[in-house]
């Protein structure tokens, strides 16, 4: 579904991605784990068009996507849950969800999808007319996830959904990731919390200083001694 081949991305002169190659198949949950500064977020930003690769190819459903800008990719079926949630803090929950459906025109279905989002996370339904910025981190993350889904994506990119959340809410979010995937949305999940990520994912890639150093089934990665040592905190 998504194929990334030998992608190089730069911040000015800083070589952030040094030939990243990965692929995501239809219906999968694929996780990309790695430490701080490994290039996880840069990979996502490159996929969704916020940064342009200097070299390499990106194809989505067989089509070259490097020529599209970020806002055009939404209509192609790629949505993103940005790092640090990025909710519109001065808009209400409902308004945030409406923004997620920005490129859609079917008003009636948008209304239904907003109700669907409130069914998925009843907490959001209770706070539907509250300002997003006044909610807790977990609630904001729920909003960020459902907002991304409002554009009816086939591929969902998630950037560290567990960051800064209480453990109990991390569980809620990861349960939701499983549910969303069961409904047919393919997911590429970037995480520092490798333990949680490998539990929910089918396959995983390990990224280190801009390069993929390992890739395998999630279960195999969980048992890999280097992964255990570096990312799972096991000796």
């Amino acid at each position: 579904m998504l194929e990334i081949n030998n992608v190089h991305t730069f911040y000015g002169n800083i070589h952030a991605l040094k030939g990243v190659t990965l692929n995501v198949e239809q219906g999968e949950i694929v996780t990309l784990i790695g430490g701080n500064g490994a290039g996880k977020t840069t990979t996502l930003r490159t996929i969704c068009g916020l940064m342009a690769p200097r070299e390499g190819s990106l194809t989505f459903e067989g089509e070259d996507i490097t020529k599209y800008k970020a806002h055009e990719l939404v209509a192609k079926g790629i949505a993103m849950v940005p790092e640090g949630r990025g909710v519109f803090s001065k808009l209400t929950v409902t308004e945030n969800l409406q923004m997620g459906a920005y490129h859609r025109n079917d008003r009636e279905n948008i209304r239904k999808d907003i109700e669907w989002a409130f069914d998925m996370f009843p907490r959001l339904g209770e706070r539907r007319s509250q300002l997003a910025g006044t909610m807790s981190g977990g609630e904001q993350q729920m909003l960020a996830v459902t907002r991304a889904l409002m554009s009816k994506p086939r591929l969902l990119l998630m950037d560290e959904p567990s960051m800064g959340l209480a453990p109990v809410l991390v569980d809620v979010i990861f349960d939701a990731i499983g549910d969303i995937n069961e409904q047919g949305v393919t997911i590429l999940l970037v995480e520092q919390n490798a333990h949680m990520a490998l539990q929910v994912a089918n396959r995983g890639y390990v990224l280190q200083t801009g390069e993929i150093v390992l890739s395998d089934d999630a279960d195999a990665l969980k048992d890999d001694p280097t992964v255990q040592k570096a990312y799972l905190g096991l000796e």
């Binding site: 969704c48 800008k69 970020a70 806002h71 055009e72 990025g86 001065k90 997620g100 920005y102």
Partner: peptide, 18 residues
């Protein structure tokens, strides 16, 4: 309004910020 709050996220929502 969306662009004022966060340009990147607005673009990721499908808004042509340019």
């Amino acid at each position: 309004m969306a662009m004022r709050e966060d340009e990147d996220v607005a673009a990721a929502m499908g808004i042509n910020t340019t």
